[in-house]
Simulated scan of single mutants.
Amino acid sequence: MNFDFQYMLSLFPRIIEFLPIVLYMGTLSFLLAIVFGMIFAVIINNKYPVLYQILMVIISYFRGIPTLIQIFIFYFGLPQLFPSLSSIDAVTAVIIALSLRNAAYLSEVFRSAFLAVDKGQYEACISVNMTKWQALRTVILPQVTRIAIPPTGNYYIMMIKDTSLAFTIGVVDMMARAKLEAAVTFKFLEAYLMVGVIYWVISAVLQFLQSKLEAYVEKPYKKEAAK
């Protein structure tokens, strides 16, 4: 069977209409991962008794188990143990799984970013009568953000791509639409190549925006270095 380029192009409008659900799952998962990742990083840096040990086990679990298995556990497994969780829909299960999994990785990104900022800067802020919150907000966090943006942005791109696993539990997204089209026409290469190209373009756009954000954050430091 010859490759049908025209058919592949005809799939674009039918697949791209499900882009909003992909961006919704990926972006919400990313925001939650940042929140949980920051909390995890604080616990790890301060080594709070009991919490630290429990968290290290949790992080080891989410880093060591494939994403697809984690999605299955949240959607199919947990309701078996806790019937009250049977009301969780597929989209919510994907968001929870992706956010916790990536929070386990982002915790190390944030922890390293905090450690990269010289402790003397915090002490200097306190010495000029700044409160802890003022020191954190105006001096520490801007530097942490500058260090964390490149790896954090990469995780966002990966999370957008990982949403393609959602179709395995019944979420109707771009991958599910491509699979349906391929099942009807048996033109699997065209269908999967089209959805792959769309994800490729999304990743390229996000990488471009990330580079612009990095340049914006770096601008004050470049000006200072030029003096």
Rank of each mutant, 00 (worst) to 15 (best):
L189P: 03
I169C: 07
Y155R: 01
F188D: 09
A176H: 15
Y156D: 05
A191S: 12
F188C: 06
A176G: 14
Y156L: 15
V184F: 14
P151H: 07
P150W: 08
A191T: 00
P151G: 08
T152I: 03
A178V: 02
Y155K: 03
A166Q: 03
L165P: 09
D162R: 11
K179M: 07
A178M: 02
K187M: 10
T152D: 02
M175L: 15
D173Y: 09
G170T: 04
E190M: 07
M175I: 15
A182M: 06
M158A: 14
M174D: 06
A182H: 08
Y156W: 15
N154W: 01
G153D: 03
T185P: 04
T185Q: 08
M158T: 13
V172G: 08
F188K: 01
K179H: 09
M159W: 03
T185A: 10
A178D: 00
V184M: 13
L189W: 10
G170I: 02
K179Y: 07
D162G: 05
D162C: 07
A182I: 04
A182D: 04
V171Q: 04
F188P: 00
F167T: 12
V184W: 13
G153A: 02
E181F: 12
P151A: 07
R177E: 15
V171T: 06
V171E: 00
T163F: 02
G170Y: 08
A183R: 13
G170M: 08
Y156F: 15
G170R: 09
R177I: 12
M175Q: 12
A183F: 13
N154T: 03
K179S: 13
T163N: 03
V184Q: 14
F186S: 11
E190Y: 09
Y155P: 00
A183H: 12
F186T: 05
S164V: 13
F167W: 15
M174E: 07
D173S: 11
T168V: 12
K187P: 05
L189H: 04
I160W: 01
E181H: 11
D173F: 09
V172D: 06
V171L: 04
V172T: 15
T168A: 11
T163C: 01
Y155D: 05
K187D: 03
V184C: 05
K187H: 11
F186L: 13
F186W: 11
A183K: 14
G170F: 08
M159Y: 03
E190C: 08
K187W: 04
A191P: 06
Y156H: 05
M158D: 13
Y155Q: 09
I169W: 09
F167K: 12
A183N: 12
E190R: 11
N154V: 02
P151R: 07
G153E: 04
A166T: 05
R177L: 12
G153C: 01
I157F: 00
P151Q: 05
T163H: 00
Y155F: 09
T185L: 08
A176I: 10
V172C: 08
K187Q: 12
K161L: 04
M158C: 10
I157R: 00
I169K: 13
Y156K: 04
T185W: 05
F188L: 06
M158H: 10
I160K: 09
R177Q: 14
I157D: 00
M175N: 11
E181L: 15
M158Q: 14
I160Q: 05
T152E: 03
M158L: 12
Y156E: 06
